[in-house]
Each structure stands twice: as structure tokens, then as C-alpha cells.
């Protein structure tokens, strides 16, 4: 569980750097008081948590049904880690710019709100929760190796807690400027963590290769 939390903490800076700028206009445009903004953030986080938990179940099911029985699972997981680590490195060191899923036009969210009564923050939260950004994909490979569904859910819960810490200050004023300063640091931190996962992936493949 601590692993999930720390992975969330170390990669969550990218949520702040890349998803937050898309959310901020909402907070600034829609809500008036800190109290109301905090309420909206609460709903947003609920949507995000729902997205995470859906993925926790999916990741565990894929890992358990398809990968765990395989004799080469160390190599498969190692290779998955390696590829995702490379993605994280590419993203961290500025080789490409994956957008947060929430960057999708919020007008669709507005339509949902009008037609089905789904509050916009919940929709935005769900989208960030389902966003296939590299840190999130890394969390996915980790849970695909989970021994149980409970472990997988706990991992994602902790990952959610770690990444959410960065989003908590959003409704407060004056965050815009600090985000601009944090942005390069946040990206690069994700890149360094990617290097560590690259190393873990390499290790897993070489050790898996020796065992099989």
C-alpha cells in the first residue's frame, strides 16, 4: 500500500502540472467562494476515485486471468514495466506531451450535466481517473501483479491518495503562478521515476530470463 502512495506522490506532480491547468478554469469560472470550490473539488475527487477503482478491478482481472498463469510472467511484467518506464521517461524529459484525458472538450461534460444531471466536477474527476497517462499506466502494471483483488484496490486507493495531495490546493487562489514554476520540476521528477522503473524492468527481465 505504501508503494502505491509513494508512486502517487512521486508521479502525482504531473497531475498538477498537466491536468490541473485544464481544471483550474472551471474552478475560477464556475465557483465563487473557497467553500463552494472545496465542495466542487470533493465531487471531482469522488469521480476520480471511481475511475481509479474501476481500473483497479480491470487491472487485477487482466493480470490474474491472463498473465499470472504464464510461465514467463516475470519477463512479461518486466517488459511491460520497461515499455511504460520508457514512456514515462519520454514524457518526463519532454520528448512528447500526452494530454490528460480531461483535456477533452468540457462542453461534453456540460451536455452531460444538462441532460443527465451529472455534475461537471464528477465528470471531470471520472475522466482524470480514467486517463491513460504514463504514471497511471505504471500503477496499472503494478496492480496487474497483485496477489488479490483487495490488494489491487488498496494499491489504487493509496495511489489516488498520493496523487490527490497535489490537487488539494487547486481551489485556493494564487496557485496559477506556482504551477508554472513547478511544471518543469514535475515533468522531470516523473522522468527520473521512469528511470528507476526502467532499472526495475531490466532487473525483472534478466532475473526472469535466468529462472526460466
Amino acid at each position: 500500500m505504501i508503494e502505491g502512495f509513494l508512486l502517487g506522490l512521486s508521479t502525482g506532480t504531473s497531475c498538477l502540472a498537466f491536468c490541473a491547468p485544464v481544471l483550474l478554469p472551471y474552478f475560477v469560472a464556475e465557483a465563487h467562494s473557497h467553500k463552494r470550490n472545496l465542495g466542487a473539488l470533493g465531487i471531482f475527487l469522488l469521480g476520480r476515485l471511481t475511475g481509479y477503482l474501476i481500473f483497479a478491478v480491470l487491472a487485477w482481472a487482466v493480470g490474474w486471468l491472463l498473465l499470472q498463469p504464464s510461465a514467463d510472467r516475470e519477463i512479461i511484467f518486466g517488459a511491460a514495466r520497461l515499455v511504460l518506464a520508457l514512456l514515462l521517461i519520454g514524457y518526463g524529459f519532454g520528448l512528447f506531451h500526452p494530454a490528460c484525458a480531461v483535456a477533452a472538450d468540457t462542453s461534453r461534460g456540460n451536455r452531460f450535466q444538462r441532460r443527465w444531471g451529472v455534475p461537471l466536477p464528477l465528470w471531470l474527476g471520472l475522466l482524470t481517473g480514467l486517463s491513460l497517462c504514463p504514471p497511471f499506466l505504471l500503477a496499472l502494471t503494478e496492480t496487474a501483479q497483485s496477489p488479490s483483488l483487495g490488494h489491487s484496490l488498496l494499491f489504487f486507493l493509496a495511489f489516488f491518495a498520493g496523487t490527490s495531495l497535489f490537487l488539494l490546493p487547486l481551489p485556493l487562489a494564487g496557485v496559477f503562478r506556482r504551477i508554472a514554476v513547478l511544471r518543469p520540476v514535475a515533468r522531470l521528477t516523473a522522468g527520473v521515476i521512469g528511470c528507476y522503473y526502467l532499472y526495475l524492468g531490466l532487473l525483472m527481465i534478466t532475473e526472469g530470463g535466468m529462472h526460466s
Binding site: V185, R187, L188, V192
Partner: peptide, 12 residues
């Protein structure tokens, strides 16, 4: 980068 390495290493 040093700030990123610091953050990543403290967490790891």
C-alpha cells in the same frame, strides 16, 4: 533536474 532528482530520491 536536480530538484526532480531530489524529489524522486527522497520518495524512493
Amino acid at each position: 533536474l536536480p530538484y526532480a532528482v531530489l524529489g524522486a530520491m527522497v520518495l524512493l
